[in-house]
Design a binder for these strands. Structure first.
Lengths: 194, 194, 194, 194
DNA sequence: TATGAATGAGATTTCATTCAT
DNA sequence: GATGAATGAAATCTCATTCAT
């Protein structure tokens, strides 16, 4: 978060709302400027171009998202508790911010390859957090020792992401957060009968 | 697949290639027409509008994709074998068709909510196949009896989808198909140490 | 009316209906062909191009329109009766054919200068009929002797045309034919008090 | 006329010229923009769409047209003088502006029903002026006391409109203004011999 | 004669970005 | 820093007309 740049933040917040309400392609720069209460040209004093607004939105929001999870995980003792906390917070944060959920799960995907790569870079620290939990689990012998981290991480992230997307597509009609424990159990024990 | 409509298929095939190579938004109708060897106007004899091309591409290709998997699964005896076959074929088919992989994992997501819903409708039969496997597994007592199908299905589909997307984003630098067994094991046993 | 050319007439009749119902610019050749029950290409066996359809529609319909008026006037003795008959029949014929009224008063005017000139040529015989009545009236000393024919004709035709157009624009909500006598009186005596 | 909007007026003036020279349908927005010395997009800062240019042209020009006539009539004493002035000015103004004459008599009629209704609304104040003259004439006992205003107005306007259209169609080869007195006499006394 | 699938030119409008004030 | 009027490139889709059958 750029300090002492009130307009910067006003534009970021306006962008999230406008994109969530209108969809990515109907979110003209002029609409964002209007919602932010600045002139169109002012946008370009703070952002290189329209794409840069989007990346910045994701950076700011994802930065906070990941930070919250990191803090919450910090004082959990083992991988089990950490993973459960991560899942719960992943769901909680998106369930708490309707606009953000729409933007991250639907609108931000409507972008070209270049933008997708930038988004992936922003996402990297989150994937690192997941990797760290997996490694800790392996060291604790809670998780399988032959677990390849990328594979396990893709299962975890893929599952969470698919769940949130489904929930958004279903117009958030059901409770997402209450499923955190079940998801955790399923990821830990897999499909098989005990 | 519409029979006796050679132009229809020529346009579908051209569209997959052009979209994969240029991205959806840089895929002008005229570019698709040229690649298909027809006039621009001819496109509109077979498709309502540009978006309809994209949906039709997905319908045709996904139809074949699902059909292949259904056939391959048919003669497998138990849920375990069926799931492994599904995973393997999911990876194999996308690995075998570079253009299709890009279109389904990246370009198709660049669409508005309306289009997303149409895509989900096309995807539904595939999710039904996964659900059927899960139910069979539960009946066979291979899978947990308290397994809620939507949750398990979202884990399975989410994991496969995330893996393919990652692989496409990494420019298909590594072998996807060879990971099928490991993914299957992970989905079955989960993260925990045995 | 071309004899022994049933398709020619089917196309003419279809064109009047399609233009009246959809307006000139929404009357595609394919729509006229469909209404006529022929293939698009068949149109071009009978008409040079789309504009030719329009001119032909006007020729055929105006031909009948004028012929009817000529016949009705023939056995009227003096200019007064002839003019009254012309006015009444002008109103009657258009009031009796809703589609024709729309086409002549509104849709056919939506054309370029070239088409307008052709339409004027078709209209010429009607203007000649009016001129003949005026000349007869002058000879009979019923009308002013210093009457310049073009001027009087423009007053007569302009008045009738304006009245019909107004009536069509007002969606034919009132009775046009019953105004014939009043119009005739006004044209004969002018605005002044007697 | 919008004040302090130089571009608005530049576009209006350019539109009249371009439409008169090329016809409405061959008057591409880019052509109007070029003649006005602005970018294509600038047109859309001042007009909703292409049709709006046409309506606005008519509003501006007709507004001035009517205003001039109103002013000229104001200090005329009786209905006779007022009507003669109206006829003379109607002819004079259109004869003085070649482009405007073409646009109002020919190009403006090439429009769909919706546009026609808008044009009629703009024309309404002019028809009101004519109605007022008729009423005054009736009160003065100069005109017939049983004169129905709409009928008389349609004769007056229909005659003037037909005369100007004919003159434009004949490529303005003869003098229109010099016919004002004769038209006035004819409208007042009608066709009959004195 | 009749068909109708195929053609392809052509124009409106949007909107990210700039730059003079 | 802030403004917002102006720019102008770019692409979908329509529809009159053709021509091989």
């Amino acid at each position: 978060m750029k300090k002492n740049k009130p307009k910067y933040n006003m534009i970021i917040e306006a962008a999230v709302k406008v994109i969530a309400e209108n969809g990515y392609h109907a979110s003209q720069v002029s609409k964002i400027a209007k919602k932010a209460g600045v002139a169109d040209g002012t946008i370009y004093l703070y952002f290189k171009n329209k794409e840069d607004i989007l990346v910045s939105v994701f950076e700011e929001k994802m930065g906070q998202f990941i930070e919250q999870i990191k803090v919450a995980i910090m004082d959990k003792a083992d991988a089990h508790e950490k993973l459960l906390t991560l899942i719960r917070m992943h769901f909680e944060q998106l369930a708490a911010d309707h606009h953000l959920a729409i933007v991250t799960q639907l609108e931000l995907r409507q972008s070209n390859l270049g933008l997708r790569r930038q988004i992936n870079r922003v996402l990297k620290p989150y994937l690192d957090v997941i990797d760290a939990i997996i490694e800790q689990g392996v060291e604790e012998k809670t998780y399988q020792t032959d677990l390849t981290s990328p594979l396990a991480r893709q299962m975890i992230f893929g599952t969470l992401d698919e769940m949130v997307t489904n929930w958004v597509m279903k117009e958030e009609k059901y409770d997402l957060v209450s499923q955190a424990e079940a998801v955790h159990r399923l990821l830990i024990h897999g499909l098989q009968a005990k």
